[in-house]
Design a protein around this nucleic acid. Structure first.
Lengths: 338, 338
DNA sequence: TTGAAAGCGTTACCAC
DNA sequence: GTGGTAACGCTTTCAA
């Protein structure tokens, strides 16, 4: 490994001068600069990021902590993150979280020297933890959760649930089922319960009483969606439409419905949430979340926060949008159109 | 930031002793050990990874360099990588590559201090680059490419192309189209051309001459697959079956076929490659690649290489397997069965 | 404009 | 067993 001292020796200057050239800190004569640059290229010298980080107190790395990063929605967010990071001088460290213990483990070892900034994605973190991390000097941006004093990017999930439900109400549905994450899930995710609030609000606004037997909870998995839909559709008085809190659950629901001999949207309409790629293939009507944008904006804001003059914490609200496709139609219709 | 010296002072010992406790390097009396541990927990001390890395010469980080990491197949590989990494003491740095310049940029800045080990995924790297990286002392494992002297994990793509084609031949097809990545793609990916070799071999073995007009090249994208299939199927003497080098291309091909009023597999059979999640939804017959396993094994081998006694470089061949689903059937059949 | 030298927080070696 | 003290490779201040 060639060090800065060897470069200095080779160029006949001091190590400090090489450093100055390296960092464009000015006050280096053109001639010296040229000699140093030549030595660097001759020796194929590359600064040691560790030493540099230790000396400067930052490591040119940003961390992203994200639960279940291989889920389509997380991947789409990460795509935005990486795009925003492209061209910056920062490396990306990925902390995947598959369980609450996992999360705590990462959060505990996280400090300023591991990453200069942290993007907390789709994961409510206890205020105390957040405070501790920020206390180490790390810049933090929250995507999909919020906390006083932190820059965050959120969507209005209540409005999203309302949007999906209202769409079905507008089509004439009155028996509308709902499925989302369990309210007491171990991570404390609240998006599903917020969407459920929106569902309830839309029904209330329309004067439709909520039938609690039509509200189900389970993980965002295809098989779980199929299972819950199976339960709902095999009841004596099945719903004519379903609001699902993820496209994945919706895909399972559609699968189950078809397996039971029901047509979609003829016998039952289905609305998803997220608008991941699969939604388009399925022709799924869904509430579109700006996933890519949230990741991109989150990382952009984090990089800004890492800059010379960090802006004040801000809250950015990204709009949800209903994408009408082929899985919703008025009730009691064969192959209806939207 | 609390340093090892403060801990030492607090416990009334020297910094060296704290370090010994921290690293279980032995030769510390039980009593001292207890006092140090107490000080650590009182002060909520966490070692600085940068300083540690600088001193020890390694940074407890592994890198993964992967092109287009949001592609379903890459994500599935990464899922295996992360699983293998779980429980280890290594952080994961992700280098996404979207263009050859991108790749070179990453490879150029890569050195021993940035990561202790590197997993090169689905990307043939010039031997010189590989040599340079390894020369910095970094352990390297190749997934989906091979190079003398490097541990690698590969599949026999020629056999894979053969497998897909033979399946169609066995069903009775004789006019079989092929689509894969361009042989002169900027990254130098060879999997598609290997599969094409397999395709040609299978046809030759069956005594079926290759009709060059049935062989097309394009990127692994849905729209490209649709486009290529459109060209093939609108020819005067269209193929009755298609071998696609990715499930994504196959999905596009199916879409195009249906849009042209052809049934799958009635009018045209389609075989994909990869067996990503989508393949199951589509009922796509495909050549299954052990994606998850390749990532998991790759990272496992890398961690072993990082250990005390690194094993010799080895080549691991992972088997491909035909998964028969609903998109292949004998020619000239409506809704045929496999 | 430049060189020398003092850190940055650890680890590891060497005495005691 | 334990403390002192060089590294590790870089940045940055201080003089010159």
């Amino acid at each position: 490994m060639v060090t800065i001292r060897e470069v200095a020796a080779h160029a006949g200057v001091g190590a400090g001068t090489v450093s100055r050239v390296l960092n464009d800190s000015g006050h280096v004569s053109a001639d010296t600069r040229t000699r140093v640059l030549a030595a660097i290229s001759t020796l194929d010298y590359r600064p040691n990021p560790l030493a540099r980080g230790l000396s400067r107190g930052r490591c040119q790395t940003v961390g992203v902590i994200v639960p279940f990063f291989t889920q389509a929605s997380a991947v789409e967010r990460l795509r935005g993150v990486v795009a925003a990071l492209d061209g910056s001088r920062y490396d990306l460290v990925l902390f995947d979280v598959e369980s609450p213990e996992h999360r705590d483990e990462h959060v505990a070892t996280l400090n300023r020297q591991r990453a200069d900034g942290l993007l907390v994605m789709s994961m409510p973190l206890p205020a105390a933890d957040l405070g501790r991390v920020a206390g180490t000097g790390m810049s933090v941006v929250l995507v999909d959760s919020r906390q006083d004093g932190f820059t965050s990017i959120v969507s209005d999930d209540v409005a999203g649930g309302d949007l999906a439900t209202r769409h079905l109400l507008d089509l004439g549905h009155r028996r509308i089922g709902f499925m989302g994450d369990a309210p007491d899930n171990p991570f404390g995710f609240t998006s599903s319960s917020d969407r459920e609030d929106g569902y309830r609000r839309a029904l209330a606004d329309a004067g439709v009483p909520v039938d609690e037997s039509l509200v189900r909870h389970g993980a965002h998995r295809r098989d779980v969606g199929a299972d819950l839909a199976g339960q709902l559709l095999s009841s004596p008085e099945p719903p004519t439409a379903l609001v699902c809190c993820s496209d994945v659950q919706a895909a399972g629901a559609i699968e189950a419905a078809r397996r039971m001999g029901r047509t979609v949207p003829g016998d039952v309409s289905v609305v998803g949430f997220d608008d991941i790629e699969m939604a388009e293939h399925l022709g799924l009507t869904t509430v579109r979340q700006p996933l890519y944008r949230s990741g991109e904006l989150g990382m952009t804001l984090l990089l800004e926060a890492l800059g010379a003059e960090p802006p004040e914490p801000t809250v950015h609200e990204l709009d949800l949008e209903l994408v009408r496709r082929a899985t919703t139609a008025p009730p009691h219709t064969k192959r209806g159109e939207t």
